[in-house]
Amino acid sequence: MYASIVHQVYRKDELSVWQVDGRKHRQYCQQLCLLAKFFLDHKTLYYDVEPFLFYVMTNADDEGCHVVGYFSKEKNSFLNYNVSCILTLPPYQRQGYGRLLIDFSYLLTKVEGKVGSPETPLSDLGLISYRSYWKEALLRRLCSAPGPTLCIRDLSKDLAIASSDIVSTLQERGLMKYWKGKHIVLKKQEVLEEVSRRAYRARCVEAACLRWAPPACGAPPR
C-alpha cells in the first residue's frame, strides 16, 4: 500500500485501515472487486466503482503491510447500507479480521450519526459473521444496560445497527416481546449470566484510533 494512493484512516499497533476512493483510484478498486469475485459467488460489481469508497484492512510486519480484507461502502446510500461488499481473504479467515471489518463499518456509521445495515444478499460466511456480531453486540449492551427492559429504538441508536437486524437477532434469542403496541426488549437473567461466564474477549476497533470524518461533510480524512 502506498501513502500517495490511499489515506490511512485507522491505526492501532500492527492493524491499519486505508480509505480508497473509487473515483480517484478506479483501477485499484476494480482489481479489489475482481479479487473478490474469486471468493464470493454473488459478487457482480467490478466496473462501476466510482460511487464507492473502499476500506482496506492491513496487518503490518517486518516485510510491510499485508491486505487481510476490505469492504466497500456507497458514498450516498438511500437505503442506509453501510457495507456493499465485504471480504476477508482466505488465509486470514477465522482469525477475527471479519469481525474487525464489521466493527469498523459500524464505527464509521456511528461517526456519521446514522444507523446502518449491510447490503444483501450476503455470502454464507458473511451472514454467519454478521449474525454473530449482532448477537454479541446486543448481549453485551444488555449486560450493561440499567433497568429490566430496553426499547429497540434506543438499542439501534446506541449500536448504529438497523432496527430490523436487532429485531431478528433478539427474536432468535427469545429476548423480545410485543406489548401495548411496542416491541420490548427483555433482559433474561440466565442469558446475561451466560455472557458473563463466557467473558467474551473478541478484538474490537477503538474509536480513539480513528482519523476520519464523513466525506459528505466535506472534510478530508485527518
Rank of each mutant, 00 (worst) to 15 (best):
Y178R: 03
S156G: 05
V115G: 04
E112C: 14
A145V: 06
E63Q: 09
P118M: 08
L155K: 00
N80C: 05
S132C: 09
T109L: 07
F104V: 00
P146W: 01
G113K: 04
A160C: 15
I102S: 02
D62F: 11
A160Q: 02
D124P: 10
V67D: 04
A137C: 13
T169F: 05
L87A: 00
L79I: 10
I102D: 01
Y97H: 07
F71M: 03
S129P: 03
M176D: 03
G96Q: 07
Q93L: 07
H66G: 02
C65S: 14
L125S: 15
R94W: 08
P90A: 03
A160F: 02
Y106G: 02
W134R: 08
I152S: 08
Y81N: 15
P121I: 11
Y81F: 15
E172F: 11
F78G: 14
R173P: 02
D62N: 10
G96E: 04
Y97M: 01
T149C: 05
E74Q: 11
V115Q: 12
A137R: 15
R141E: 12
D124T: 13
L127A: 11
D62P: 00
K177A: 04
N80F: 13
Y92A: 07
Q95V: 07
A145E: 13
L142F: 02
N82Y: 02
L87D: 01
A145I: 05
K177P: 00
N76P: 00
M176Y: 05
L139E: 09
T109G: 09
S84M: 13
Q95D: 03
Y92L: 04
L107V: 04
Q95W: 02
H66N: 09
T120C: 11
Q93W: 07
D62H: 15
P118E: 11
G96M: 09
M176S: 08
R153S: 13
S144L: 12
C65F: 07
C143T: 06
Q93I: 09
C143F: 05
I161K: 07
L108S: 01
Q95C: 02
S144Y: 06
G98W: 04
I166V: 12
T109W: 08
L101G: 03
I152V: 14
L138G: 02
I128A: 11
A162S: 10
K110Q: 14
K114N: 13
P121L: 09
D154Q: 10
Y70E: 03
E119W: 12
G64K: 13
D158F: 00
V68C: 06
E172S: 12
G98V: 04
Y178K: 09
D62Y: 14
R141M: 13
D158N: 09
I102N: 05
R153L: 13
S156R: 02
K75W: 04
V115F: 10
L170C: 15
